[in-house]
């Protein structure tokens, strides 16, 4: 079973991604501070069909100094690393002028510095394995469009898109691909605070007149992780039901 780490893999988009990868024959290792009941039920379900395909690794991605040790512990417990899905992130919204300074810093730390550092050590593990690898960064359509109240979040997601393109060139010679998935607005805990009127407006402005769901995003991630995507690197797959078309 090839190992794919999914950060924030116990809820929202992350759990949909982890479950899809587990169903596709990988061992999905969900990283989060703690498990929850829904995730535990998913693990039980996965155990019945493919034992070991969905696992949990406790870690607080804010503890950047401990990331090297954490990646080493993953390799020790599970073996070589095939893929990393940088999904965890904060969805802090608010008008920039009134956003608390520590909130800005916290968001950039968790959405940018943490996934970049985690990727560094995951890539090193892949270098040791010498069998190539897959990095998928979860960006957002707001990395390339605008949405009032999401400026800092958008900056963090645009950062991941830029990171993706340059890293793809850097480690392409090793057979490691680096791509982004840019979801539109998906119904998850993170977007739960959205007002019904805002939601309706997004739907009205989308080509397909609906919102994508977490499974759509998971399918795009699973493609980029798969062998079929071996010649896809440095790009962004947008999954937004045509909202930015």
């Amino acid at each position: 079973m090839r190992n794919v780490v999914v950060t924030g893999g116990t809820r929202g988009l992350g759990i949909a991604i982890a479950r899809k990868l587990a169903a596709d024959g990988y061992r999905a290792i969900a990283v989060a501070r703690q498990q929850n009941d829904h995730f535990a039920a998913c693990v039980q379900q996965a155990e019945a069909t493919a034992p070991g395909s969905l696992r949990f690794a406790a870690f607080d991605l804010n503890d950047i100094a401990f990331i090297p040790k954490f990646v080493a512990s993953l390799s020790e417990e599970f073996g070589p690393l095939h893929g990393l899905v940088n999904n965890a992130g904060l969805g802090t919204s608010g008008i920039l002028a009134t956003l608390a300074d520590p909130q800005i810093e916290r968001l950039l730390r968790l959405n940018v510095t943490s996934p970049i550092t985690l990727t560094k050590y995951a890539v090193r593990a892949m270098m040791v394995g010498g069998a190539g690898g897959r990095i998928v960064n979860i960006s957002s359509v707001v990395a390339s469009t605008g949405y009032s109240g999401l400026s800092v979040y958008a900056a963090s997601k645009a950062a991941l898109a830029g990171f993706t393109r340059s890293l793809a060139r850097e480690i392409g010679p090793l057979g490691i691909t680096v791509n982004c998935v840019a979801p539109g607005f998906v119904d998850t805990d993170m977007t739960g605070g959205m007002k019904p009127a805002q939601r309706a407006q997004i739907i009205r402005r989308s080509a397909l007149r609906r919102l994508p769901d977490a499974k759509d995003v998971a399918a795009a991630v699973a493609f980029l992780v798969s062998d079929a995507a071996g010649n896809v690197t440095g790009t962004t797959v947008t999954v937004d039901a045509g909202n930015t078309a």
Binding site: P68, R124, A125, M127, V128, G130, E170, I171, P173, L174
Partner: peptide, 21 residues
């Protein structure tokens, strides 16, 4: 530089040390 990065990663795995980090 990419080869050197691979060498450093492999040596950390083999020797348990990374003088660069």
């Amino acid at each position: 530089s990419l080869c050197l990065a691979v060498i450093v990663a492999r040596l950390e795995d083999g020797l348990g040390v990374d003088p660069f980090s």
